[in-house]
Design a protein around this nucleic acid. Structure first.
Lengths: 146, 146
DNA sequence: TATAAACTGTTAGGCTACCTAACTATGAGC
DNA sequence: GCTCATAGTTAGGTAGCCTAACAGTTTATA
Protein backbone atom coordinates (compact mmCIF):
# COMPACT_ATOMS: atom_id res chain seq x y z
CA UNK A 1 0.00 0.00 0.00
CA UNK A 2 2.07 2.91 -1.21
CA UNK A 3 -0.95 5.11 -1.81
CA UNK A 4 -1.58 7.57 0.98
CA UNK A 5 -5.21 8.40 0.27
CA UNK A 6 -8.00 6.31 -1.17
CA UNK A 7 -7.31 5.86 -4.84
CA UNK A 8 -9.93 6.65 -7.39
CA UNK A 9 -10.15 3.16 -8.86
CA UNK A 10 -11.23 1.98 -5.46
CA UNK A 11 -13.87 4.68 -5.36
CA UNK A 12 -15.26 3.56 -8.69
CA UNK A 13 -15.48 0.00 -7.47
CA UNK A 14 -17.06 1.23 -4.25
CA UNK A 15 -19.73 2.99 -6.25
CA UNK A 16 -20.64 -0.14 -8.21
CA UNK A 17 -20.50 -2.21 -5.10
CA UNK A 18 -22.95 0.08 -3.36
CA UNK A 19 -25.37 -0.24 -6.23
CA UNK A 20 -25.04 -3.99 -6.17
CA UNK A 21 -25.57 -4.08 -2.42
CA UNK A 22 -28.87 -2.35 -3.02
CA UNK A 23 -29.80 -4.97 -5.61
CA UNK A 24 -28.85 -7.65 -3.14
CA UNK A 25 -31.10 -6.22 -0.45
CA UNK A 26 -33.87 -6.09 -3.01
CA UNK A 27 -33.28 -9.71 -3.98
CA UNK A 28 -33.19 -10.75 -0.38
CA UNK A 29 -36.49 -9.08 0.33
CA UNK A 30 -38.09 -10.64 -2.73
CA UNK A 31 -37.15 -14.07 -1.36
CA UNK A 32 -39.14 -13.50 1.82
CA UNK A 33 -42.60 -13.07 0.41
CA UNK A 34 -45.18 -15.62 1.54
CA UNK A 35 -46.14 -16.78 5.00
CA UNK A 36 -42.79 -18.49 5.42
CA UNK A 37 -39.97 -17.95 7.83
CA UNK A 38 -38.21 -14.66 7.26
CA UNK A 39 -34.56 -14.41 6.33
CA UNK A 40 -33.72 -13.25 9.84
CA UNK A 41 -35.59 -16.16 11.35
CA UNK A 42 -33.78 -18.52 9.03
CA UNK A 43 -30.45 -17.06 10.10
CA UNK A 44 -31.33 -17.40 13.75
CA UNK A 45 -32.36 -20.99 13.30
CA UNK A 46 -29.26 -21.87 11.32
CA UNK A 47 -27.08 -20.51 14.09
CA UNK A 48 -28.94 -22.45 16.74
CA UNK A 49 -28.86 -25.53 14.51
CA UNK A 50 -25.21 -26.21 15.14
CA UNK A 51 -25.13 -25.86 18.90
CA UNK A 52 -27.08 -24.18 21.71
CA UNK A 53 -26.29 -20.49 21.53
CA UNK A 54 -26.57 -17.53 23.87
CA UNK A 55 -28.93 -14.70 23.08
CA UNK A 56 -26.06 -12.23 23.04
CA UNK A 57 -24.16 -14.32 20.49
CA UNK A 58 -27.20 -14.49 18.26
CA UNK A 59 -27.72 -10.75 18.50
CA UNK A 60 -24.09 -10.10 17.60
CA UNK A 61 -24.24 -12.46 14.64
CA UNK A 62 -27.39 -10.87 13.33
CA UNK A 63 -26.01 -7.39 13.84
CA UNK A 64 -28.88 -6.34 16.12
CA UNK A 65 -29.20 -5.46 19.81
CA UNK A 66 -29.92 -7.99 22.50
CA UNK A 67 -33.50 -6.85 23.21
CA UNK A 68 -34.35 -7.16 19.52
CA UNK A 69 -32.93 -10.66 19.48
CA UNK A 70 -34.87 -11.58 22.62
CA UNK A 71 -38.04 -10.46 20.89
CA UNK A 72 -37.39 -12.61 17.83
CA UNK A 73 -36.34 -15.60 19.86
CA UNK A 74 -39.45 -15.44 22.02
CA UNK A 75 -41.55 -15.52 18.87
CA UNK A 76 -39.66 -18.54 17.60
CA UNK A 77 -40.18 -20.17 20.98
CA UNK A 78 -43.91 -19.49 20.88
CA UNK A 79 -43.99 -21.05 17.44
CA UNK A 80 -42.33 -24.09 18.97
CA UNK A 81 -39.23 -23.82 16.81
CA UNK A 82 -36.64 -23.20 19.54
CA UNK A 83 -36.33 -23.81 23.25
CA UNK A 84 -34.80 -21.48 25.82
CA UNK A 85 -33.02 -23.00 28.78
CA UNK A 86 -30.73 -21.42 31.36
CA UNK A 87 -27.05 -22.04 30.77
CA UNK A 88 -25.93 -24.54 33.42
CA UNK A 89 -22.54 -22.86 33.71
CA UNK A 90 -23.97 -19.34 34.14
CA UNK A 91 -27.57 -18.97 35.12
CA UNK A 92 -27.77 -15.40 33.88
CA UNK A 93 -27.37 -16.69 30.36
CA UNK A 94 -29.97 -18.42 28.20
CA UNK A 95 -29.21 -21.12 25.68
CA UNK A 96 -31.29 -21.14 22.54
CA UNK A 97 -31.66 -24.46 20.83
CA UNK A 98 -33.63 -25.85 17.92
CA UNK A 99 -36.52 -28.17 18.70
CA UNK A 100 -37.32 -31.13 16.47
CA UNK A 101 -40.10 -29.11 14.90
CA UNK A 102 -37.70 -26.21 14.48
CA UNK A 103 -35.12 -28.30 12.76
CA UNK A 104 -37.48 -29.74 10.20
CA UNK A 105 -39.19 -26.39 9.58
CA UNK A 106 -35.77 -24.87 9.06
CA UNK A 107 -34.65 -27.61 6.71
CA UNK A 108 -37.85 -27.48 4.69
CA UNK A 109 -37.79 -23.73 4.37
CA UNK A 110 -34.12 -23.85 3.39
CA UNK A 111 -34.84 -26.37 0.67
CA UNK A 112 -37.67 -24.31 -0.73
CA UNK A 113 -35.58 -21.17 -0.74
CA UNK A 114 -32.69 -22.94 -2.37
CA UNK A 115 -34.98 -24.14 -5.10
CA UNK A 116 -36.28 -20.67 -5.73
CA UNK A 117 -32.77 -19.21 -5.82
CA UNK A 118 -31.55 -22.06 -8.02
CA UNK A 119 -34.35 -21.31 -10.47
CA UNK A 120 -33.07 -17.77 -10.61
CA UNK A 121 -29.49 -18.87 -11.10
CA UNK A 122 -30.59 -21.15 -13.89
CA UNK A 123 -31.07 -18.07 -16.04
CA UNK A 124 -27.35 -17.35 -15.95
CA UNK A 125 -24.87 -18.90 -18.34
CA UNK A 126 -21.99 -21.01 -17.06
CA UNK A 127 -19.46 -18.19 -17.15
CA UNK A 128 -21.65 -15.91 -15.10
CA UNK A 129 -22.28 -18.63 -12.61
CA UNK A 130 -18.57 -19.30 -12.24
CA UNK A 131 -17.90 -15.61 -11.79
CA UNK A 132 -20.57 -15.37 -9.15
CA UNK A 133 -19.39 -18.47 -7.31
CA UNK A 134 -15.87 -17.06 -7.15
CA UNK A 135 -17.04 -13.77 -5.71
CA UNK A 136 -19.23 -15.09 -2.91
CA UNK A 137 -16.36 -15.78 -0.50
CA UNK A 138 -14.98 -12.33 -1.17
CA UNK A 139 -18.23 -10.72 -0.08
CA UNK A 140 -18.19 -12.94 2.98
CA UNK A 141 -14.72 -11.68 3.76
CA UNK A 142 -15.93 -8.09 3.49
CA UNK A 143 -18.82 -8.61 5.85
CA UNK A 144 -16.43 -10.05 8.40
CA UNK A 145 -14.22 -6.98 8.06
CA UNK A 146 -17.08 -4.52 8.50
CA UNK B 1 -32.39 -26.72 -21.00
CA UNK B 2 -32.20 -30.47 -21.24
CA UNK B 3 -32.32 -30.89 -17.48
CA UNK B 4 -35.81 -31.64 -16.22
CA UNK B 5 -35.32 -30.79 -12.55
CA UNK B 6 -33.01 -28.38 -10.82
CA UNK B 7 -29.58 -29.89 -10.72
CA UNK B 8 -27.75 -30.26 -7.48
CA UNK B 9 -24.77 -28.11 -8.38
CA UNK B 10 -27.17 -25.25 -8.80
CA UNK B 11 -28.64 -25.98 -5.40
CA UNK B 12 -25.21 -25.84 -3.81
CA UNK B 13 -24.53 -22.49 -5.41
CA UNK B 14 -27.97 -21.32 -4.34
CA UNK B 15 -27.14 -22.18 -0.77
CA UNK B 16 -23.91 -20.16 -0.78
CA UNK B 17 -25.60 -17.34 -2.58
CA UNK B 18 -28.30 -17.15 0.08
CA UNK B 19 -25.69 -16.95 2.79
CA UNK B 20 -23.90 -14.21 0.92
CA UNK B 21 -27.14 -12.31 0.41
CA UNK B 22 -27.51 -12.27 4.15
CA UNK B 23 -24.00 -10.90 4.52
CA UNK B 24 -24.86 -8.26 1.95
CA UNK B 25 -27.92 -7.15 3.86
CA UNK B 26 -25.78 -6.96 6.96
CA UNK B 27 -23.16 -4.89 5.14
CA UNK B 28 -25.79 -2.63 3.72
CA UNK B 29 -27.27 -1.99 7.12
CA UNK B 30 -23.88 -1.28 8.63
CA UNK B 31 -23.39 1.43 6.00
CA UNK B 32 -26.50 3.30 7.11
CA UNK B 33 -25.61 4.06 10.70
CA UNK B 34 -25.39 7.74 11.63
CA UNK B 35 -27.82 10.57 11.08
CA UNK B 36 -27.27 10.39 7.34
CA UNK B 37 -29.56 9.64 4.46
CA UNK B 38 -30.65 6.00 4.43
CA UNK B 39 -29.91 3.67 1.57
CA UNK B 40 -33.51 3.85 0.43
CA UNK B 41 -33.44 7.62 0.47
CA UNK B 42 -30.22 7.59 -1.51
CA UNK B 43 -31.82 5.30 -4.08
CA UNK B 44 -34.85 7.52 -4.36
CA UNK B 45 -32.71 10.59 -4.82
CA UNK B 46 -30.51 8.94 -7.41
CA UNK B 47 -33.57 8.02 -9.45
CA UNK B 48 -34.95 11.53 -9.29
CA UNK B 49 -31.49 12.90 -10.07
CA UNK B 50 -31.66 11.94 -13.72
CA UNK B 51 -35.11 13.22 -14.57
CA UNK B 52 -38.40 14.03 -12.84
CA UNK B 53 -40.05 10.74 -11.97
CA UNK B 54 -43.54 9.60 -11.07
CA UNK B 55 -44.29 8.23 -7.64
CA UNK B 56 -45.41 4.94 -9.13
CA UNK B 57 -42.14 4.56 -11.03
CA UNK B 58 -40.16 5.22 -7.89
CA UNK B 59 -42.20 2.69 -5.94
CA UNK B 60 -41.68 0.06 -8.62
CA UNK B 61 -37.96 0.70 -8.75
CA UNK B 62 -37.64 0.45 -5.00
CA UNK B 63 -39.78 -2.67 -4.90
CA UNK B 64 -42.30 -1.13 -2.51
CA UNK B 65 -45.97 -0.10 -2.79
CA UNK B 66 -47.08 3.31 -3.87
CA UNK B 67 -48.31 4.45 -0.44
CA UNK B 68 -44.96 3.57 1.10
CA UNK B 69 -43.19 5.54 -1.59
CA UNK B 70 -45.49 8.52 -1.04
CA UNK B 71 -44.57 8.44 2.63
CA UNK B 72 -40.85 8.49 1.93
CA UNK B 73 -41.15 11.14 -0.72
CA UNK B 74 -43.16 13.43 1.53
CA UNK B 75 -40.39 13.16 4.11
CA UNK B 76 -37.78 14.05 1.53
CA UNK B 77 -39.95 16.97 0.46
CA UNK B 78 -40.24 18.20 4.04
CA UNK B 79 -36.47 17.99 4.30
CA UNK B 80 -36.30 20.18 1.19
CA UNK B 81 -34.51 17.54 -0.86
CA UNK B 82 -37.13 16.97 -3.55
CA UNK B 83 -40.09 18.86 -5.00
CA UNK B 84 -43.44 17.40 -6.00
CA UNK B 85 -45.27 18.97 -8.92
CA UNK B 86 -48.26 17.74 -10.91
CA UNK B 87 -47.37 16.17 -14.25
CA UNK B 88 -48.47 18.68 -16.93
CA UNK B 89 -49.44 15.86 -19.28
CA UNK B 90 -51.57 13.99 -16.70
CA UNK B 91 -52.72 15.83 -13.64
CA UNK B 92 -53.34 12.66 -11.67
CA UNK B 93 -49.61 12.03 -11.64
CA UNK B 94 -46.96 13.74 -9.57
CA UNK B 95 -43.42 14.39 -10.71
CA UNK B 96 -40.69 14.08 -8.13
CA UNK B 97 -37.57 16.10 -8.75
CA UNK B 98 -34.37 16.89 -6.89
CA UNK B 99 -33.96 20.38 -5.51
CA UNK B 100 -30.58 22.09 -5.47
CA UNK B 101 -30.25 21.21 -1.82
CA UNK B 102 -31.27 17.66 -2.58
CA UNK B 103 -28.69 17.28 -5.30
CA UNK B 104 -25.81 18.45 -3.18
CA UNK B 105 -26.94 16.47 -0.17
CA UNK B 106 -27.16 13.41 -2.38
CA UNK B 107 -23.73 13.98 -3.91
CA UNK B 108 -22.11 14.59 -0.54
CA UNK B 109 -23.66 11.54 1.05
CA UNK B 110 -22.68 9.44 -1.95
CA UNK B 111 -19.10 10.59 -1.67
CA UNK B 112 -18.94 9.81 2.02
CA UNK B 113 -20.43 6.38 1.50
CA UNK B 114 -18.07 5.64 -1.34
CA UNK B 115 -15.15 6.53 0.85
CA UNK B 116 -16.33 4.25 3.61
CA UNK B 117 -16.89 1.38 1.20
CA UNK B 118 -13.56 2.04 -0.48
CA UNK B 119 -11.85 1.81 2.89
CA UNK B 120 -13.45 -1.59 3.29
CA UNK B 121 -12.40 -2.70 -0.18
CA UNK B 122 -8.86 -1.58 0.55
CA UNK B 123 -8.52 -4.58 2.81
CA UNK B 124 -8.87 -6.94 -0.14
CA UNK B 125 -5.98 -7.99 -2.32
CA UNK B 126 -5.99 -7.24 -6.04
CA UNK B 127 -7.24 -10.67 -7.04
CA UNK B 128 -10.19 -10.50 -4.72
CA UNK B 129 -11.05 -7.05 -5.94
CA UNK B 130 -10.95 -8.20 -9.54
CA UNK B 131 -13.15 -11.18 -8.70
CA UNK B 132 -15.61 -8.95 -6.95
CA UNK B 133 -15.67 -6.40 -9.75
CA UNK B 134 -16.43 -9.12 -12.27
CA UNK B 135 -19.33 -10.46 -10.25
CA UNK B 136 -21.16 -7.20 -9.62
CA UNK B 137 -22.86 -7.08 -13.04
CA UNK B 138 -23.96 -10.68 -12.61
CA UNK B 139 -25.77 -9.86 -9.40
CA UNK B 140 -27.33 -6.89 -11.15
CA UNK B 141 -28.56 -9.24 -13.83
CA UNK B 142 -30.12 -11.50 -11.21
CA UNK B 143 -31.99 -8.70 -9.54
CA UNK B 144 -33.46 -7.70 -12.86
CA UNK B 145 -34.63 -11.28 -13.41
CA UNK B 146 -36.31 -11.56 -10.02
C1' DT C 1 -71.58 13.23 -24.82
C1' DA C 2 -72.72 11.12 -20.67
C1' DT C 3 -71.44 7.52 -17.90
C1' DA C 4 -68.76 3.82 -16.43
C1' DA C 5 -64.23 1.87 -15.82
C1' DA C 6 -59.41 2.31 -15.08
C1' DC C 7 -55.61 4.65 -13.20
C1' DT C 8 -52.49 7.93 -9.92
C1' DG C 9 -51.76 9.28 -5.74
C1' DT C 10 -53.03 10.30 -0.75
C1' DT C 11 -55.01 9.19 3.76
C1' DA C 12 -56.00 6.11 7.58
C1' DG C 13 -54.93 2.37 10.36
C1' DG C 14 -52.13 -1.53 11.53
C1' DC C 15 -47.99 -4.62 11.89
C1' DT C 16 -43.12 -5.78 12.52
C1' DA C 17 -38.48 -5.10 13.43
C1' DC C 18 -35.59 -2.38 15.20
C1' DC C 19 -33.91 1.00 18.89
C1' DT C 20 -32.70 3.07 23.94
C1' DA C 21 -33.52 3.19 28.83
C1' DA C 22 -34.66 1.05 32.91
C1' DC C 23 -34.93 -3.11 35.53
C1' DT C 24 -33.89 -8.05 37.56
C1' DA C 25 -30.92 -11.54 38.63
C1' DT C 26 -26.57 -13.69 38.64
C1' DG C 27 -21.51 -13.75 38.78
C1' DA C 28 -16.76 -11.88 39.96
C1' DG C 29 -13.31 -9.10 42.46
C1' DC C 30 -11.61 -6.71 46.36
C1' DG D 1 -20.01 -9.23 52.05
C1' DC D 2 -20.37 -5.39 49.21
C1' DT D 3 -19.68 -3.45 44.86
C1' DC D 4 -19.45 -3.59 40.13
C1' DA D 5 -19.96 -5.89 35.75
C1' DT D 6 -22.68 -8.94 32.84
C1' DA D 7 -27.02 -11.51 30.55
C1' DG D 8 -31.28 -11.06 29.60
C1' DT D 9 -36.15 -9.11 29.85
C1' DT D 10 -39.57 -5.45 29.93
C1' DA D 11 -41.41 -1.00 28.54
C1' DG D 12 -42.03 2.48 25.37
C1' DG D 13 -41.01 4.66 21.06
C1' DT D 14 -39.80 5.11 15.90
C1' DA D 15 -39.44 3.98 10.95
C1' DG D 16 -40.77 1.51 7.08
C1' DC D 17 -43.59 -1.38 5.18
C1' DC D 18 -48.43 -3.15 4.21
C1' DT D 19 -53.81 -3.19 2.78
C1' DA D 20 -58.15 -0.83 2.37
C1' DA D 21 -60.68 3.05 1.41
C1' DC D 22 -60.90 7.38 -0.85
C1' DA D 23 -60.54 11.63 -4.33
C1' DG D 24 -59.43 13.33 -8.61
C1' DT D 25 -58.31 12.57 -13.66
C1' DT D 26 -58.26 10.22 -17.87
C1' DT D 27 -59.98 6.83 -21.12
C1' DA D 28 -63.33 3.87 -23.19
C1' DT D 29 -67.97 3.02 -24.46
C1' DA D 30 -72.68 3.27 -25.25
Amino acid sequence: MSVPLIDSELLVLAQSFRTTLRHAVYLSRSMDGDGELTTMQMSTLSMAAEEPLRVSRIAANLGIRVPSATEQIIKLEQAGLVSRTPDPTDSRAVLVQLTETGRSAWEDAGRRRNERVAALLAHLDDDDRATLAAALPVIGKLSRTA
